[in-house]
Simulated assay, not measured.
Amino acid sequence: MVEENRPAFAAERRDRILELVRANGTMSLRALATKVHASEVTVRRDVRALEAEGLVDRRRGGVALPGRMGHEQSYSGKSTQCAAEKAAIAAVGARLVRPGEAVSLGPGSTTEALAHELFQHTELTVVTNSLRAADVLATAPGVRVVMTGGTLHGPVRALVGAEAQDTLADLRVNRAFLSGNGVSAERGLSTPDPAVAAVDRALADCAEETVVLADHTKIGAETMVPTVAPEEIAHLITDNGADPEVLMTLEDTGALVHVAVALGERGH
């Protein structure tokens, strides 16, 4: 019972925590505790020790690499991270969409997963600045795709700039689906890039309600530029690796929280 607190075991556990954070960029305390088979209290103590050495930064309910606030991971890196969780989140998101509606999709690997889920929908209009989402839906027989104009922003495979924002200014859709790099009760949805943030805001502004798709690594994380205020998030869809305490703080802001279970974690 006390072995996990012995110095040798603590050093090994902290090495493993650092390895996991380096691989994922950000992680919740709950997810780390599960991975290293320790309590959240123990992991929180380990994270404080790693932070004192300058190896990680603490976030509310989680931990990130130093400088993560301003760093944007490559699209290919995002696509492979938490793939099962993103697929589960996308499936829940797709159930919010009704025939005959118009929705907007922001950039990101989770909204790309949602595009796959929307492929079989009928009488649906999708407005997007995401090249990946548009490509997924290009041959969907029941989906009409409207792309914004703009300048290509390579890291997220999306169109940004004044032209993209102008395209969205006169549109009205039922709901916007966005997936940034962090979501917290203090800052809402955020992203490291100001150009991406500006179009994300425009996508949200043209919608009756905003749905945030965020896997557990983004819950409690905060990045440089806020895009959607906490009180403007109507739905938050995440996975069961998210820190429940942080989810409660987000519920307190008015968001309806949906927790998806990844396929490999469902009961038989």
Rank of each mutant, 00 (worst) to 15 (best):
3 E>S: 14
3 E>G: 15
5 N>A: 14
6 R>V: 14
8 A>C: 12
15 D>R: 13
17 I>N: 09
18 L>D: 09
21 V>A: 07
24 N>T: 15
27 M>C: 10
36 V>P: 02
37 H>N: 13
38 A>P: 05
39 S>T: 12
39 S>D: 08
40 E>D: 13
47 V>C: 08
48 R>W: 10
49 A>Y: 01
54 G>Y: 02
54 G>F: 03
57 D>N: 13
58 R>P: 07
59 R>D: 10
64 A>E: 00
66 P>V: 07
67 G>A: 04
72 E>T: 05
78 K>F: 01
83 A>L: 06
85 E>C: 04
88 A>P: 01
95 R>M: 13
96 L>C: 05
102 A>P: 01
103 V>S: 01
107 P>I: 06
115 A>C: 02
126 V>S: 00
134 A>P: 00
137 L>N: 03
142 G>H: 01
142 G>S: 02
145 V>I: 11
148 T>Y: 09
151 T>K: 09
155 P>Q: 08
155 P>R: 08
167 T>F: 15
169 A>T: 08
170 D>T: 12
172 R>H: 13
173 V>G: 08
183 V>P: 02
183 V>H: 01
187 R>T: 15
194 P>G: 14
194 P>S: 15
195 A>P: 02
207 A>Y: 06
208 E>G: 14
210 T>P: 11
212 V>W: 07
225 V>E: 04
233 I>A: 04
234 A>V: 10
236 L>I: 11
236 L>Y: 09
241 G>M: 01
250 L>Q: 06
266 R>D: 03
267 G>P: 06
